[in-house]
C-alpha cells in the first residue's frame, strides 16, 4: 500500500487518510456579489491537470489534521507535503 507522509506523523498507509480535493480554492471575497454562474464555478469547477496537482488530505486515523500535498496525477507520486497555511513549494515533476 502506498505510504503518504503526514507532515506531523510521518509516513503512514494511505488507508489512514481522507482525500479533500483541490487545495488553495479561495472562498469568494464578496459572496453576495457572485452570480449563479460564478457560484457554480467556485463550488463545482476544479482543475484536472495531467501532472503536479495541489490537493488537500486529512490524516483521519492519525492526528486528524488537514494538510496539503502535491501529487503527480500521472504517477500518483507525492512530490511534496506541507502544512495548512504554508505556501505551495516548488516541485519538479
Amino acid at each position: 500500500m502506498q505510504l503518504i507522509p503526514c507532515p506531523w506523523c510521518g509516513p503512514r498507509e494511505e488507508a489512514e487518510f481522507h482525500y479533500g480535493g483541490q487545495a488553495h480554492v479561495a472562498y469568494p471575497g464578496d459572496p453576495s456579489a457572485l452570480s449563479d454562474e460564478e457560484w457554480a464555478r467556485y463550488v463545482f469547477f476544479r482543475e484536472n491537470p495531467s501532472g503536479p496537482f495541489a490537493e488537500r488530505w486529512s490524516h483521519n486515523a492519525g492526528c486528524r489534521r488537514w494538510f496539503n500535498a502535491v501529487r503527480d496525477t500521472r504517477t500518483h507520486d507525492l512530490l511534496a507535503v506541507y502544512r495548512v497555511g504554508e505556501p505551495m513549494p516548488e516541485v519538479t515533476a
Binding site: 503512514r12 498507509e13 488507508a15 486515523a61 492519525g62 492526528c63
Partner: peptide, 8 residues
C-alpha cells in the same frame, strides 16, 4: 505514542 489503525 502513535494513533493509527490496527486491523482497521
Amino acid at each position: 505514542c502513535v494513533q493509527t489503525l490496527l486491523a482497521r
